[in-house]
């Protein structure tokens, strides 16, 4: 991995990217460019491979048994699937948030401090505390939890938990953040807060979000990639995709015939 001290252009360039579970091909030769400091949304009917392609972007896909990837992903110009690249290092730089909030059964503080401790980001205790606070402030959770940092994270509400795991992810100082349907398990109020958060995060890092909701994609996305059966069938700014879809499968989806 590169070691330059300048901020990287956190762009993804996927070329002929395919992903498999055993013999089943879930993602089919996708070519896709993701811009830096923008929100890119992945959409499509259930089982279209949108979550799988997200998981290939930080090499999480291969953590499952008999999962396999072909093709190439260039992250700020560096091949993620090159020989000698350790997926562990990739994941430290490209964060991921899952559909269901997955706080560790630890205190709120220890959850957010997990990555700084693991990656040795903080040199001192006060530095660590500063980082935790900063991450929690960034996700708008600080005022709610600052008096109970030593309580178990499992005691938080669903929406708070999801913001906590986002804070946990950004405390690792990633260059890009991948979110897999982050709002699907949340109520509308919590969803609105997460959407605001995504918009503010995109000022600093690249955000890729898988979503089921057309409205959400319209609200937050700078670009939308539409998938069907593992293929990317349409890619463009939301206006173009919603107003004048060129692919009939996208049209069907938009009018609710599939998905």
């Amino acid at each position: 991995m590169p070691d330059g001290s300048q901020r990287l252009e956190a762009t993804f360039k996927c070329r002929k990217l395919s992903a498999y579970f055993g013999d089943r091909k879930i993602v089919r030769e996708v070519d896709l460019d993701i811009a830096d400091r923008k929100v890119t949304a992945f959409m499509g009917p259930s089982g279209c491979g949108k979550s799988t392609i997200l998981r290939t972007l930080n090499r999480m896909h291969e953590s499952a048994p008999d999962a396999r990837v072909e093709g190439s992903v260039l992250f700020s110009g560096h091949e993620l699937y090159a020989r000698g690249v350790d997926p562990v290092d990739v994941r430290a730089r490209i964060g991921m948030v899952f559909q269901k909030p997955n706080p560790f059964p630890k205190t709120i503080f220890d959850n957010v401090a997990f990555a700084p401790r693991l990656l040795g980001l903080a040199r001192t205790r006060s530095d660590l505390e500063r980082r935790v606070e900063e991450a929690l402030v960034n996700v708008g959770l600080w005022t709610e939890v600052k008096d109970r940092l030593k309580d178990s994270a499992l005691g938080l509400s669903g929406g708070q938990q999801q913001r906590l795991v986002i804070a946990r992810a950004i405390a690792a100082e990633p260059a890009a953040l991948l979110l897999d349907e982050p709002c699907s398990a949340l109520d509308p109020a919590s969803t609105a807060r997460i959407e605001e958060l995504i918009a503010s995060l995109a000022r600093r890092l690249s955000v890729v979000v898988v979503t089921h909701s057309l409205a959400q994609a319209r609200r937050i996305a700078d670009a939308i990639a539409f998938f069907h059966n593992g293929e990317m069938v349409e890619f463009g700014p939301p206006g173009q995709l919603f107003e004048a879809p060129s692919d009939p499968r996208v049209k069907d989806y938009l009018v609710g015939r599939t998905g």
Binding site: N58, M60, V88, R91, G95, K100, P105, L118, A169
Partner: peptide, 17 residues
């Protein structure tokens, strides 16, 4: 739950970590 392990891996932990 498998989400626990996935969560750690996604933060840059190795399997052993």
């Amino acid at each position: 739950p498998s989400s626990l392990k996935e969560g750690a891996l996604a933060l840059g932990a190795s399997k052993l970590d």
